[in-house]
């Protein structure tokens, strides 16, 4: 066998192995990443599955127990005008779809507050409660909205 071919086969095997690793890992770890409205639409089929849901913390819904580290709040769909790429506008969440989220055993994230955008990682129960494993808050990092005060 020519040496070039032999090496092509060896390299091909490595590439195939890496590809196989990626494919199986995707199959085992993939989670839906949905907005609140999308979850609402497909609520029946999603029950019991691990999800990532992007939404906004509904004002007046936050309950925090610092002893048991239990955080519960309503997760609402952000207004359409306020999608990524557009500068944040001060619109409060009103009358939108709301899921009840409970997160147990985690400290309340520093950035967590009413009207903040969050990603909730957890599973959806049949009654529409999201049992969260983790609540990720926006860490505005370097690219803070121009007027962060407006979103409070």
């Amino acid at each position: 066998m020519p040496k070039r071919l032999r090496f092509a086969i060896g390299a091909g095997l490595i590439v195939a192995a890496i590809g196989y690793l990626i494919v199986t890992a995707v199959r085992n770890t993939a989670e839906y990443y949905l907005t609140v409205n999308e979850v609402k639409v497909r609520q029946g089929e999603l029950a019991g599955q691990m999800l990532r849901v992007a939404g906004r913390v509904a004002p007046g819904s936050i309950a925090w127990n610092p002893v048991t580290l239990t955080l519960s709040f309503g997760l609402a769909q952000p207004p359409a005008a306020d999608q990524p790429g557009v500068k944040p506008v001060a619109i409060n969440v009103t009358g939108a779809t709301v899921f009840h989220v409970i997160c147990r055993g985690q400290p309340k994230p520093d950035m967590f507050a009413a009207n903040r955008d969050v990603i909730v990682e957890g599973s959806l129960a049949a009654d529409g409660t999201i049992e969260a494993r983790q609540v990720l808050t926006s860490c505005p990092s370097k690219y803070v909205p121009k007027q962060p005060a407006q979103t409070q």
Binding site: A54, P84, S138, C139, P140, S141, K142, Y143
Partner: peptide, 8 residues
């Protein structure tokens, strides 16, 4: 979407 740069 990244936790570090929600606001783009």
């Amino acid at each position: 979407s990244s936790v570090h740069s929600f606001t783009q």
